[in-house]
Nucleic acid binder design. Sequence first.
DNA 1: ACAAATGATGCGGGAGCCCGCACTTCTACC
DNA 2: GGTAGAAGTGCGGGCTCCCGCATCATTTGT
Lengths: 253, 253
Amino acid sequence: MRILIVEDDYFHASFLQNVIAEALPEVTETLHAQDGLQGEAAARAGRFEAVVMDLQMARRNGIEAARTIWDERPRTRILFWSNYSDEAYLRGVAEIVPAKSAYGYVLKTASRERLKLVLRAVLLEGQVMVDREIQRLRRRSASHRHVLNDSEYAVLLDLALGLQDRLIAERRGLSLRTVQNRLLTLYAKLGVSDEEPSMPGLNKRVRALSRAISTRILNVEMLETAQRDLESWLGERPVNEKAPPTQEGDGAR
Amino acid sequence: MRILIVEDDYFHASFLQNVIAEALPEVTETLHAQDGLQGEAAARAGRFEAVVMDLQMARRNGIEAARTIWDERPRTRILFWSNYSDEAYLRGVAEIVPAKSAYGYVLKTASRERLKLVLRAVLLEGQVMVDREIQRLRRRSASHRHVLNDSEYAVLLDLALGLQDRLIAERRGLSLRTVQNRLLTLYAKLGVSDEEPSMPGLNKRVRALSRAISTRILNVEMLETAQRDLESWLGERPVNEKAPPTQEGDGAR
DNA sequence: ACAAATGATGCGGGAGCCCGCACTTCTACC
DNA sequence: GGTAGAAGTGCGGGCTCCCGCATCATTTGT
């Protein structure tokens, strides 16, 4: 069995190699890539069955690297290994994992024993496994602020990219008013409201993004990924011009 | 000489201790705190002259920890040691460093030799020193998107927190129109505009925040710090009610 | 099968936002 | 001293946004 390690921190990478050697004696070879791009290239060339992937790397983050790896070989088993349990990462991973494959998610703070366990479970036995520490954190925040469903999350992403209502409606195939309803519930779930005595007049739209980021429902990596997705959507869109209800050559604006 | 290390990653902390022992033989004792809060407490109790501080830690980030340490003992020398060179961190540090003190900023990817050099220069000799790698990155992005001056940055923070124009004006002691002018230049400098052929109707306000985050001009840590500052400002504000429609003596300006 | 709940949509209006135009300080450079 | 440029402010208009009120369609419970 051959394993690819994608990890930009030298210490973490060598620790991982060490643990792998101990937990998985059936491994015959491990390769170490330093960032997402290298990881993609290595996976393409090396045909690994198993990958341990850091998230949050320069040049190409772990989610995007995993996506292209899975696009090319959907059976690859990938264990995500990260310092953070941002909801954004979990949603990002859940969105791209193919049916054929197995994956896992562990925190870097997990004990050596737990890491070994997850390594075996995911990479060797093909189980799906999420560190119970993450489930715990997840549950705790869920009790507080309500959980976003997929359609709300999609709208949140669009909002975060700066799209205005009309465009969101077009992209998601909804009416304008419906989008605004989604935003409404989004505001509620993110705790954006004027009722706060301390919080006076605020711009709900921006505030929503702000809170989504503070609470790690969104993070930079997923924002960048979403931006790329948006661009490709814009690309294949049939130069759809809006027949503006009003008239005529308003020229560049 | 006694040194406090504030760092939540075990491997990095022990590597650092190792390098310190080698670079600074005059150190008689090092203490290791695992996050910002612990770091503040340790600094308060231990009266260290020198600190090596990670940014991006749970519970209390490095900037905030440094701020309270410097509030209590302004001569403490602090070396910031981070994986990232986000502009947000640099501005955050620059904002809080007291005149009496010395500080430095190194990337974790710096070579062992450079780390040793910076350790001696900052902690021992009291120089101010920023890793040249950071200057380089800084310069590169500066050429591209224009650099924000302090007042624009302040407005950006307010925008990011979700304040609306009126409140920003009040907080910064400006007229409404002036705030809007600032926002205008902010949009320009962040590259938010409709001229993009690809980018159709977008919400400039949100887009500005989005881009500020993507380009690391802002990051989560500084957003949270700014939020706390805002809350304390709101706290000491004299329950200022808006005499809404009309105007009159709005006092401060 | 009927009622209640949930979700999508339309309409309309008050408020906030973006920004062109014009006027006034304030600052800087000959 | 004078003039040009930058920054601050006011006014007004067009557009987006937030959201209450009301109407259907779909889903769910009993």
